[in-house]
C-alpha cells in the first residue's frame, strides 16, 4: 500500500474541489439564469472533457503549458511557475477535466428553483447577493454536495491526464491511480489489489450517495412545483 500516493491523491482532490466548487457556483448561476450570445457554445465547451479521452486532454495541456510552449515560458519567466511534472500542474489539469462534474449538478440545481421563488425574493427587497446566500444556496446544497463528491472521487481515480501532465514522481505527481499501475508493473498484486479495493469501495459509496441526492433534488423540485 502506497500511503504517500494515497495522501497525494487526497490532497489533489481537496485542492481541486476547494478551488472548483466556489467558481462553479457563480459560473453555474450565470449559465442557469443569464441569457447571452454564444451560451450554447460555452455549455458545449464545458462538456468537452466528458467526451474527450483523458490522454488527449493531457496531451494538449502538456504541449500548451510545457517549457517549450509560449504560455509555459511566460509563466516561468514572470512567476517562476513550472506546471508540467509538478503538483501545481496536476491541479490545473484536474480543474479543467472536472469542470463538467462540478458545473452540471450545480447548474441543474439552480434551474430547478422555481422562477416564482426568486421573483418573490426580489419583491421582498433582497439584493442579488442576498438572494444567492439566503434563498438559492440553501435550496441548491444537494447539487453542490453532489458536485463536491463527484469531483473528489473523479480526481482520486484520474489516471490518463495525471500521467501525461505529471509523469510518475513520488511525492510530487504519483497519485494512487498511478501507484496501482506501478504495482501491477512490478508484479506487486497485493498492494495493487488493496489500493484498487479502496478505490472501488469509495466509488460505490459515492455512487450510492449521488443517487440518493438525485432523488432528493428530484423530489424537492417536484414538490415545490
Amino acid at each position: 500500500m502506497d500511503w504517500q500516493a494515497l495522501l497525494l491523491s487526497i490532497k489533489l482532490s481537496g485542492v481541486t474541489v476547494v478551488i472548483l466548487i466556489p467558481f462553479s457556483v457563480f459560473f453555474s448561476r450565470l449559465l442557469a439564469y443569464t441569457p447571452f450570445k454564444g451560451k450554447a457554445w460555452i455549455e458545449a465547451l464545458v462538456m468537452v472533457p466528458l467526451v474527450l479521452p483523458p490522454t488527449v486532454v493531457g496531451y494538449y495541456l502538456l504541449s500548451g503549458l510545457g517549457q517549450q510552449s509560449w504560455l509555459g515560458q511566460q509563466l516561468d519567466h514572470w512567476f517562476g511557475v513550472q506546471l508540467v511534472f509538478h503538483f501545481s500542474g496536476l491541479v490545473v489539469a484536474s480543474l479543467l477535466v472536472n469542470i463538467p462534474f462540478a458545473i452540471q449538478p450545480i447548474q441543474r440545481a439552480f434551474e430547478a428553483i422555481p422562477t416564482e421563488v426568486r421573483d418573490a425574493a426580489a419583491c421582498c427587497g433582497m439584493s442579488r447577493t442576498k438572494i444567492l446566500f439566503k434563498i438559492e444556496l440553501p435550496m441548491i446544497w444537494p447539487g453542490i454536495l453532489m458536485a463536491f463528491v463527484l469531483c473528489f472521487s473523479h480526481v482520486l481515480g484520474e489516471f490518463g491526464v495525471v500521467l501525461m501532465m505529471g509523469g510518475n514522481i513520488a511525492g510530487e505527481t504519483k497519485t494512487i491511480a498511478i501507484a496501482i499501475y506501478d504495482s501491477v508493473q512490478a508484479f506487486d498484486f497485493e498492494s495493487a489489489g488493496l489500493m484498487s479495493m479502496l478505490l472501488l469501495l469509495f466509488a460505490i459509496s459515492v455512487l450510492a450517495m449521488t443517487t440518493s441526492l438525485s432523488r432528493h433534488i428530484g423530489a424537492g423540485s417536484r414538490h415545490e412545483n
Partner: peptide, 14 residues
Amino acid sequence: HVGYVPQHFGLFPH
C-alpha cells in the same frame, strides 16, 4: 416596494 403573490405562492421552501 411592491407586494407580489405569485400563482404558486413562491414561498421559500427551506
